[in-house]
């Protein structure tokens, strides 16, 4: 029997603001989930509105319930080996307005 040092799971987070005028409607939500699903990390998206509300960033149905219109502040968090890359790329997708206006 040997004792292995437990290394903490990498975690990363970043705040973003929804910038496209239509907000996080179905198509952007799908884009987000498609990208999030390419990472092994768990992806959580939080919305601050009175009480904190968070959803699974890999579920389209849950992402839509964020009801995130333009100007909404969201926090993207990832836990896992590729957490840094996940958060960076997902934040860029939001900041680039999902290719919309």
């Amino acid at each position: 029997m040997s004792f292995k040092a437990i290394t903490p799971m990498p975690t990363a987070e970043r705040e973003v603001i929804i910038a496209n005028s239509l907000g996080l409607h179905a198509r952007p939500a799908m884009q987000f989930v498609d990208l999030a699903s390419t990472f092994s990390s768990r992806v959580i998206v939080q919305k601050q509105c009175g009480e904190c509300y968070e959803v699974d960033g890999k579920s389209v149905m849950q992402m839509i319930t964020l009801e995130a219109g333009v100007g909404t502040k969201l926090k993207i968090r990832a836990d896992g080996e590729d957490a840094d890359a996940a958060v960076r790329q997902l934040a860029e997708l939001v900041e680039n307005k999902f290719g919309e206006e």
Binding site: G23, H25, I64, T65, G69
Partner: peptide, 17 residues
């Protein structure tokens, strides 16, 4: 009114889950 569209989608998907 994109905000109202998002609100309706929220009601629909919150329940469909």
């Amino acid at each position: 009114d994109p905000e109202r569209h998002l609100a309706a989608m929220n009601v629909i998907f919150s329940n469909l889950q």
